[in-house]
Design a protein around this nucleic acid. Sequence first.
DNA 1: ACAATTATCGTGTACGTACACAAATTGATG
DNA 2: CATCAATTTGTGTACGTACACGATAATTGT
Lengths: 354, 354
Amino acid sequence: MKKAATELTGVKEIARRANVSIGTVDRVIHNRVGVSEKTKQKVNAIIEELNFQPNKMASLLATRKSMNFAVLIPAVSADTDYWSFPLTGIEQAAAETKQFGVSVKHYFYDLDSKESFTKASHELLNDAPDAVLLAPSFVEESAVLAAKLDELKIPLVFINSDLADQNNLAYIGPDLYQSGRLAAQLISLSLQQQDNVLIVNISSDLKNDHHLVRKEHGFKKFFEDAGSKTKVATLNINETKLTAVEQSLMQTLDASPDVKAIFVTNSRVNIVAEILKKHNRNNTLLVGYDFLKKNIDYLVSQQITYLICQRPKEQGYLGIMALYKHLFKVSEVERSVYMPIDIITKENYLFYNS
Amino acid sequence: MKKAATELTGVKEIARRANVSIGTVDRVIHNRVGVSEKTKQKVNAIIEELNFQPNKMASLLATRKSMNFAVLIPAVSADTDYWSFPLTGIEQAAAETKQFGVSVKHYFYDLDSKESFTKASHELLNDAPDAVLLAPSFVEESAVLAAKLDELKIPLVFINSDLADQNNLAYIGPDLYQSGRLAAQLISLSLQQQDNVLIVNISSDLKNDHHLVRKEHGFKKFFEDAGSKTKVATLNINETKLTAVEQSLMQTLDASPDVKAIFVTNSRVNIVAEILKKHNRNNTLLVGYDFLKKNIDYLVSQQITYLICQRPKEQGYLGIMALYKHLFKVSEVERSVYMPIDIITKENYLFYNS
DNA sequence: ACAATTATCGTGTACGTACACAAATTGATG
DNA sequence: CATCAATTTGTGTACGTACACGATAATTGT
């Protein structure tokens, strides 16, 4: 560790070389008005030559900017702790950017209630944040919010699911179709000639749950593309209570004895695991989603074979970071960032975090 | 975006409340000598009360520290481009920390030559860096270097493989044993009753390649723990040329027709893939390591079924970051960081980067 | 030719912290 | 109580950039 050599650096050096004051250099850098074309060229040439990068710390220190970010995501419910992971990532990013003047305010909505979403989004708009991170679970309501934010020129980043035709800064989340394909591949690798497969959608509002549909689509497409003879049936269950799922599922399974693998299109795979365990079906290949406590438990007990995850924590982290980078002009932000599709098993789940 | 309220903040506010000068506050914060116990207590109490966090930017700006990091890793060879990934991560971290005064110098060695390692490590020591990131491929030579660095009190971080009993700051890399177990699990999920498995170690110096041994160990242990009847044989090939591998491998395979799965314990799995393709063995399950161009090609053509990866890019990135955080006192550094063990297939490889 | 604009440029202060140096206080000693 | 040293505390300047304001130069109008 040593002190830097004491030669002029930064704007001062540029100013010296260009025979102007640092004020003028400053104006050129921020292309403000009030500098002649000639000197502007001269200064820009020197900036180019020196490959000058402004000292971010000094500039941040000088501006004393402060930004309020708003985050609108589902609340962590008793039903699922999925959203605790993006939240952790968001908090981590908040901690890292705090020293640069970023403060993050949270707004939560209930996944079962569109009204709660609308209400929270009104609160959010009232607070006039400088940027918004949104998990657009409700398509139409989210579009309304996105439109308003666009009007107010407040940058918006989606996480977890995308919304088409929106003028958002970025999307950070999974490729659902492809994750369905992956599930299909994993299952197909363990299937015998005569085995069949069952897709289980568990959702109280399947029509609006584009998530599940896209995954199912990818799953089926894989078997189609492979020219496989495997029969793929779908079971839609529009209640999320165990007993309701149990009745519906067992009825189906009893009627089709060749089902050797089940693909649950969301994190409720632990419900299916519980049912299979209860009925002593231990040789069914079970694939589902998300690194939740309950799911991991069944992964360890081998009721669940594979869990597919898409780095929920990183989604939150990268979402905040994208806004930060954009507003503080740290770097350009990619329009779409698809998360890796991770496969979690009994043998690697321990290392999935950190 | 708005200006922060114009009230006193930071050391000034502390100084005001404690009725001392900012110089004294500064002394307390860095617990320098020359401040009476009484005022030290007083100031510390106020720091506590305000939950004061020094402004990193201002402090960095004021100190104008600059640090030289040295990186000693294998050169990217024609044989494998594996080390290009850690390198990318290192360069990314270097770019991010550059503005904080970090400069990173690279030293490369040849994986086939201990002399090149020794030579490079001498150069490194000559340059007296402030910190070192090391991939300790050669155990003894690395231990020598580590000891010298320890003597000079230069912090050292290992990536990619660990070295026992060294006084290093951190290790960032894979858990090899567990990755072997994972390979075993993946294979076992596709195995029939009567199928057998072959482990293939391809290395010109297997005795010293603790990597492969640890993976093999984990692999075998999985089948043991599962109480499986599957026969697991091992084939050691101490040449890396295709023809040599081909001869050895095909001889073994011809002699044991029940081998339905092959586990190659390193990234040379593409050699095996090429051989199997040549001999029209398309229904063998093949599992190996690392996200290399050649391997991905065979993954796409389905010659390789699974690739196991341990985020080489992140290893480089986190390695540099650990040194940065330590030297700039940003945060504490974890002693061991095990990378997630990722499973890559034809259906998810596209999303593995970024 | 002169004032009145307007375009261009320079200067000073601030951001929050670090550190060298100066100043003030304390305590001991003759 | 004066003197000196040791201890404790205060002050000033620097880091590199931002920006308000004042100063100068170029242009226009009469």
